[in-house]
């Protein structure tokens, strides 16, 4: 699967967690031949205290959302997830939360690898081209932000 990818004409999945292509535009496939369509990353059921960070929503809004969850009293801990480009932002949010709590909150970060699926649709006029699917990996981070137990 050393096939290079299409530049442009790609669709970035919108839903949280946002990921961006780790391997960047340095590609040299003929854009006429294939169209790249990225499928959504695999989703798992979400608890109320899971926060998936994306790059579309305003940073402050996402931070405020996390603060609300923590200060609402319902949750002792929240999980901030970020995929790809959003890893940075997830870390930022977690650190901001910690800073604003005067050190009461603690962090525990985990990283993981997420498998993403791309579809390559043939664009050739005689329509004999094979439909390709390939996978690539992207990094993700899961940060647990929690109040430590009193003892």
């Amino acid at each position: 699967m050393s096939d290079p990818r299409t530049p442009g004409m790609s669709s970035v999945p919108q839903a949280a967690p946002v990921h961006t292509d780790s391997t960047s535009p340095a590609v040299e496939m003929d854009p006429v031949e294939y169209t790249l369509r990225k499928r959504l990353p695999r989703k798992l059921p979400k608890r109320r205290n899971d926060v998936y960070v994306n790059m579309k929503t305003d940073f402050r809004a996402q931070l405020a959302r996390c603060q609300k969850l923590l200060e609402g009293g319902a949750h002792r801990e929240i999980c901030v997830h970020g995929l790809g480009l959003a890893i940075n932002r997830a870390i930022n949010i977690a650190l901001q939360l910690q800073a604003s709590s005067q050190g009461v909150l603690q962090l525990a970060a985990n990283t993981s690898t997420v498998e993403l699926v791309d579809d390559l649709e043939p664009e050739d006029p005689d329509e004999a081209g094979e439909h390709l699917t390939r996978t690539r990996n992207n990094s993700a981070i899961h940060i647990k932000v929690f109040y430590p137990d009193p003892q």
């Binding site: 369509r37 499928r39 959504l40 695999r42 989703k43 699926v117 579809d119 699917t133």
Partner: peptide
């Protein structure tokens, strides 16, 4: 076992 419909080939 697939959570969302968008994850499947169209």
């Amino acid at each position: 076992g697939i959570f969302s419909t968008g994850e499947l080939p169209s």
